[in-house]
Design a protein around this nucleic acid. Structure first.
Length: 571
RNA sequence: CGGGAAGUGGCGCAGUCCGGUUAGCGCGCGUGCCUUGGGCGCACGAGGCCGCGGGUUCAAAUCCCGCCUUCCCGACCA
């Protein structure tokens, strides 16, 4: 591609408010253009990268026997109602109506359409297992788009779905997928780590996420180095036997005046006790019902664990009016005396201890000597609803946990029969009985992967593309005042690169060397070749690898082989 | 959803407090000359419903009200 004809304009600067490096470089290098918040046009240069990544994904999916499809982008309400997700997705769904007033949504993920396909065409165990996938746009009305391609409302995802006759078959597919994912990320030049994850809104059993460790990541990864194990903070268990305040007390509850003391920190300081001697109450609105979550004062409530425990779809903090109506004093809350109709979830850390400070359900008063087993109402439920954090103890060994931020690039689930049961996707087994298909689902954020690759591979001057997803392999630059002789030499080199099968970008513009070199660094193509009066005189070509500082001047003769060897040597 | 900040040629910004020349600057763009190993120089030029709507005023980019859009922070407070 001749740059003089290429639909590309690099930018010298972008707005100061654009913080993440990948976002800046995507814009400056002319990969993408924002149309509105969370929605991006892919420019020709960016599309080349996207296609590279997609093809790597496609090859590895095909290699394990997955079959590519393209599914509907617009899903009718009835389809999502079969699984219950029309409502469960909530505000994330982009909803619209057709001319008949029929309700539709833009696909945020495709379990329903793929199950629709499978139930129509899979009849017998002989048809199983089958893996279907697509590489397509996903539309989600994210509460807050950010970071350019890192979190967009419209993004490219590879989503694969497997249908199995039994658990063993699911395990086989799951393992094959996991291996395929390792290959995909490695081929894209991205270092990832696999962690254990929550299954979230998708439902299902076990799942793993593939994370890129990065400061701009939005997920917290809890890591135990001794166990060599990593988990998403959303579901990470931990050993709560530290900080237990186990001093027993036979004393009766005692009301204490705590004027305007609402936070655990203030309360502990005021009463000269430790935070872990206090109980932290967080009141939630779970699908319209008031729920009280209680954890030890030194811990935090984990929303995801709580959501899973109470099996709600929509969890939010309770409104002040709801608290007042239930007779709960905000800041001085207690489950004592509340209606049995209000669920109270007590973190299991609490019952390890004994006497606590708790709210009195009366403004400016707390209670001392509260022993949950003795004083709390009988309907409290005990569960793990606390958030693991750095410095907490590992659930399996004595080591302390640490935390890294991560970008989620891939997620694989063992779904089980959640969708097949809901949607009647059955098959006839060897024994002649009808059974629901067992499912797995496997996603990769392809556009996010591009952003993550840039986060991992750049310097002050621009992107340093891993060769497998680079938009071009070779960048030929003509340096020096244009003249017929130089033009001919540069054209010839360009043509030779094309003939040798290299995807080649050719800077034939009438620009100063500085402009060309800076654009080359910004765009980040692995091999740069310069043709100038100098190189012509010596009958050489100047070659520089984007990821290395040194240049070389191999002979002009046989340059295609030299370039091939250089590319082959790159990781 | 809450809290901040911002919308001015294609891009990045100043001007707005304190209303009053022809709305500036850098980059980019066009033409010509010049230059050609790290975002070159000179000259001339084109390009603006100052986010949208309403109001105040002799007069609004500037003041007031409403709306829209975008960015950042918080989503953990009981």
């Amino acid at each position: 591609m001749r740059m003089s004809r290429f639909f590309l304009r690099t930018l010298r600067n972008v707005g100061e408010e654009i913080e993440s490096v990948s976002h800046q470089l995507c814009l400056r290098a002319g990969l993408i253009q924002m149309v509105s918040s969370g929605h991006y046009n892919f420019l020709p240069l960016g599309l080349r990268v996207l296609r590279k990544a997609e093809n790597i994904v496609r090859q590895e999916m095909d290699a394990i026997g997955s079959q590519e499809t393209v599914m509907v982008q617009m899903m009718n309400k009835e389809l999502l109602e079969e699984s219950g997700r029309w409502d469960a997705f909530g505000p994330v769904l982009f909803k619209l109506r057709n001319r008949n007033g029929h309700e539709l949504c833009l696909g945020p993920t495709h379990e329903e359409p793929v199950t629709f396909m499978a139930r129509a065409f899979v009849q017998s165990y002989k048809d199983l297992p089958v893996i279907l996938y697509q590489i397509a746009n996903k539309m989600r009305d994210e509460p807050r788009a950010r970071g350019g391609l890192l979190r967009a409302r419209e993004f490219v995802m590879k989503d694969a779905y497997s249908f199995e006759a039994d658990e063993q078959s699911l395990d086989n597919t799951y393992n094959a997928m996991r291996e395929a994912y390792f290959k995909i990320f490695a081929r894209c030049g991205i270092k990832t780590m696999i962690i254990e994850a929550d299954t979230g809104a998708m439902g299902g059993k076990s799942s793993n996420e593939f994370m890129v460790v990065s400061d701009i990541g939005e997920d917290n990864i809890i890591i135990c180095d001794s166990c060599n194990k990593a988990m998403n903070q959303e579901m990470a268990p931990f050993d709560k036997t530290f900080n237990v305040y186990s001093e027993t007390s036979e004393a009766a509850p005692e009301k204490v005046h705590t004027p305007d003391i609402k936070t655990i920190g203030d309360l502990a300081a005021f009463l000269k006790v430790r935070p872990e001697q206090c109980l932290k109450h967080v009141m939630y609105n779970a699908d319209g019902a008031l729920v009280i979550a209680i954890v030890r004062g030194d811990l935090e409530v984990n929303d995801v664990k709580l959501t899973n425990r109470i099996k709600c779809t929509d969890l939010d903090f309770a409104a002040a009016e709801d608290l007042a109506a239930a007779g709960i004093a905000a800041g001085f809350a207690s489950p004592i005396g509340v209606s049995e109709s209000i669920r109270v979830i007590l973190d299991d850390s609490v019952i390890m201890g004994n006497a606590y400070v708790c709210g009195a359900n009366e403004k400016d008063y707390h209670m001392k000597n509260i022993v949950p087993g003795r004083d709390f109402p009988k309907h409290v439920e005990i569960a793990d609803i606390a958030m693991a954090a750095a410095g907490h103890k590992c659930a399996k060994c004595d080591d302390l946990l640490r935390v890294e931020k991560g970008i989620e690039l891939g997620h694989i689930f063992k779904l089980g029969t959640r969708y097949s049961v809901a949607m009647n996707a059955n098959f006839t087994d060897e024994d002649g009985r009808e059974k629901p298909m067992i499912m797995g689902c496997y996603g990769i954020g392809v556009t996010r992967l591009i952003a993550a690759a840039i986060e991992q591979h750049h310097d002050d001057n621009g992107i340093i593309w891993p060769k497998q997803i680079a938009p071009f392999q070779v960048h030929v630059i003509q340096v020096g005042k244009k003249n017929p002789e130089l033009d001919a030499a540069a054209d010839a080199l360009y043509q030779e690169m094309l003939d040798a099968g290299f995807e080649t970008l050719y800077d034939d513009r009438n620009e100063s060397p500085g402009v060309k070199f800076n654009d080359a660094d910004l765009i980040g193509i692995p091999v740069r070749l310069v043709v100038s009066a100098r190189t012509m005189k010596d009958n050489v070509v100047e070659m520089k690898l984007r990821g290395e500082a040194d240049r070389s001047t191999p002979p002009r003769e046989g340059i295609a082989n030299t370039v091939r060897a250089a590319l082959d040597a790159l990781a």
